[in-house]
């Protein structure tokens, strides 16, 4: 598999949000605005790349019977690291994302890539795979967040363009998340995934 393909697979063919439907919980819950979606994506990218690297290194010596607990411990370590870093350097974002940062531990994308890719491949390939899938996730979440922010609050990346009016509040709430996700999935699968 070429290096480029490893990177691009995560965007289109194995897009975690629109094709694999993994990590739906942060996808639906945190994409109330483009910035929130972007930061959730980047946080997951951080954990994904580091856990992929470490798991690809330790996979040969981990006994098969306990491999899932071991992987989870590795992932949880990086999530705790991320949580403390965000609390220290981006407290506002830490407040906004709240519970969903510790929940990255149980994000099925992270464990899924560890199981399906990192434990069978080398360090370099696993890192590239982590970057590809992580960026794909970040992009999808940003697009979803952007669409919901434009429709729901009438702004894009915090820049308000409808003046004093209200947006369609439903799009900021849960039903709007499902609606937008559904329609974006339709568009994605019709036009991008050939």
């Amino acid at each position: 598999m070429s290096k480029i393909k490893l990177l691009t697979d995560g965007f289109v063919k194995n897009n975690p949000t629109f094709v694999l439907l993994l990590g739906m919980c942060p996808t639906l819950a945190t994409t109330t605005s483009a910035i929130n979606g972007l930061s959730m994506g980047l946080a997951t990218l951080f954990v994904l790349v580091l856990s992929n690297i470490v798991i690809s290194l330790i996979a040969p010596v981990v006994p098969d019977k306990v491999h899932i607990p071991v992987y989870i411990v590795v992932i949880a370590t990086f999530v705790t690291l991320l949580q403390l870093l965000m609390q220290a350097y981006t407290p506002a974002m830490y407040e906004t994302l709240g519970l969903f940062i510790p929940l990255i531990v149980v994000n099925c994308i992270v464990l899924g890539r560890a199981e399906a890719f990192a434990n069978k491949h080398g360090v370099g390939e696993s890192a590239l795979d982590g970057i590809g899938v992580g960026l794909g996730f970040t992009c999808s979440l940003t697009i979803l967040g952007l669409v919901r922010e434009i429709l729901g609050s009438g702004s894009a990346f915090g820049w308000n363009f409808i003046g004093g009016h209200d947006g369609m509040l439903a799009f900021v709430m849960a039903p709007g998340a499902f609606l937008c996700l559904g329609y974006l999935m339709v568009l994605f699968n019709k036009y991008l995934k050939k």
């Binding site: 209200d166 947006g167 369609m168 509040l169 439903a170 039903p175």
Partner: peptide, 9 residues
């Protein structure tokens, strides 16, 4: 219902 949730005012 969509309008009720979206434009309560």
């Amino acid at each position: 219902v969509f309008l009720l949730v979206s434009f309560p005012t």
